[in-house]
Simulated assay, not measured.
Amino acid sequence: MRVLAAMSGGVDSAVAAARAAEARHDVTGIHLALSRNPQSYRTGARGCCTIEDANDARRAADVIGIPFYVWDLSDRFHEDVVEDFMDEYAAGRTPNPCLRCNEKIKFAAVLDRALALGFDAVATGHYAQLHTGADGLIELHRAADHGKDQSYVLGVLTQEQLAHSMFPLGDTTKDVVRREAAQRGLLVADKPDSHDICFVADGDNAGWLREKLGDRAPNHGGAIVDDATGEVVGSHEGTFGFTIGQRRGLRLGVPAPDGKPRYVLDIEPVTGTVTVGPREGLRVDRVTGIRPRWCGTVPTRLAGPGVTVQLRAHGREHPAAVRVEGERVEIELLEPAEGIAPGQAAVIYDGTRVVGSATISATGRA
Score class of each variant (00 low, 15 high):
Asn37Cys: 13
Tyr69Arg: 15
Thr28Trp: 06
Asp120Arg: 10
Ile66Met: 10
Asp120Cys: 07
Lys104Pro: 00
Ile105Val: 11
Phe68Val: 01
Glu88Thr: 10
Cys98Phe: 02
Ala121Gly: 00
Gly9Val: 09
Ala6Asn: 10
Tyr41Pro: 05
Asp112Met: 09
Ile64Asn: 02
Asn55Gly: 08
Cys101Ile: 08
Ala54Lys: 12
Phe119Asp: 01
Thr28Ala: 11
Glu88Asn: 09
Asp87Pro: 00
Leu34Glu: 07
Met7Ile: 07
Arg46His: 15
Leu4Gly: 05
Ala18Tyr: 08
Tyr41Glu: 15
Arg76Trp: 03
Val63Ala: 04
Asp26Met: 09
Arg76Val: 09
Leu99Gln: 12
Pro95Met: 12
Gly118Met: 03
Trp71His: 11
Thr94His: 13
Asp53Val: 09
Thr28Asn: 04
Asp12Cys: 02
Leu34Trp: 02
Val3Arg: 01
Glu22Thr: 10
Asn37Ile: 13
Glu103Val: 08
Leu111Pro: 05
Asp84Ala: 13
Tyr41Trp: 15
Asp53Glu: 14
Val110Glu: 03
Leu115Trp: 01
Cys98Asp: 10
Ile51Ser: 15
Ala109Ser: 13
Tyr41Phe: 15
Arg58Tyr: 10
Cys48Pro: 00
Asp87Leu: 14
His31Cys: 06
Asp87Asn: 14
Ala90Lys: 09
Lys104Phe: 05
Leu99Tyr: 14
Tyr69Leu: 15
Met7Thr: 01
Asn96Tyr: 10
Leu32Asn: 00
Met7Phe: 06
His78Pro: 00
Lys106Trp: 00
Glu52Cys: 01
Phe107Gln: 05
Ala121Val: 01
Thr43Leu: 15
Thr94Ser: 14
Asn55Thr: 15
Ile64Ala: 03
Glu83Cys: 07
Pro67Gly: 09
Ala20Arg: 04
His25Val: 04
Pro95Phe: 12
Val11Ser: 01
Asp72Thr: 00
Pro67Tyr: 07
Val82Asp: 05
Arg36Ser: 14
Ala6Leu: 15
Lys104Ile: 00
